[in-house]
């Protein structure tokens, strides 16, 4: 097993330190050690996107990131999308547009969609479908998810 490794990282704007084994994924540490259970494990091999977080601004499957690779990186997880008082427009639109049923995929979709809208505020339907194709949802058939992202994009434009 070897000795545990010390890692310093930044999660949702906060400096965080943890000890991990070399074989642990960042998802595992996030959920089990740091109790940030918003990111979900659907497959543990990069196929489903339920574990998506932003690593240095880029969406990654956190099950494929080794915990030791977190050293020096900056992460944003689903827990950081809302402010203290308000939901993010994406979260509002997912709720108003019923874009979740069981909700297990929702954290991953929200993180991927936020990365998309941060980079491309007015995506086409095709771009939304392409950018979200690494996130599987088995409940909704994607229709309401795509529409929620479209509506959030419109709302964010109005606010600006």
């Amino acid at each position: 097993m070897g000795k545990k490794i010390h890692v310093s990282t930044t999660i949702n704007g906060e400096a965080v330190e943890f000890l991990c084994e070399a074989r642990q994924s960042f998802l595992e540490v996030l959920r089990d050690t740091l109790t940030l259970t918003g990111a979900k494990e659907g497959c543990n091999n990069g196929n489903c996107g339920a574990c998506t977080v932003l690593m240095n601004g880029v969406p990654v499957d956190s099950c494929l990131v080794l915990a030791v690779e977190a050293d020096g990186a900056e992460f944003e997880t689903v827990e950081s999308i809302a402010t203290e008082e308000h939901l993010h427009p994406l979260q509002e639109c997912f709720l108003e547009g019923a874009a979740l049923q069981c909700g297990i995929c929702t954290p991953g979709f929200l993180v991927s969609a936020k990365a998309l809208l941060d980079n491309q505020p007015e995506p086409t339907e095709e771009e939304i479908r392409f950018e979200l194709s690494g996130n599987l949802c088995r409940c909704t058939g994607y229709d309401k998810i795509v529409r929620a992202v479209q509506t959030a994009s419109e709302r964010m434009k109005e606010v600006k």
């Binding site: 959920r31 259970t37 494990e41 689903v78 827990e79 939901l87 979260q91 709720l95 297990i104 929702t106």
Partner: peptide, 16 residues
């Protein structure tokens, strides 16, 4: 809804 879009809802693997 709010629990489910903020990652707070507790699914079976989230039990601690």
């Amino acid at each position: 809804g709010v629990d489910k879009v903020t990652g707070r809802a507790v699914y079976a693997n989230d039990v601690q």
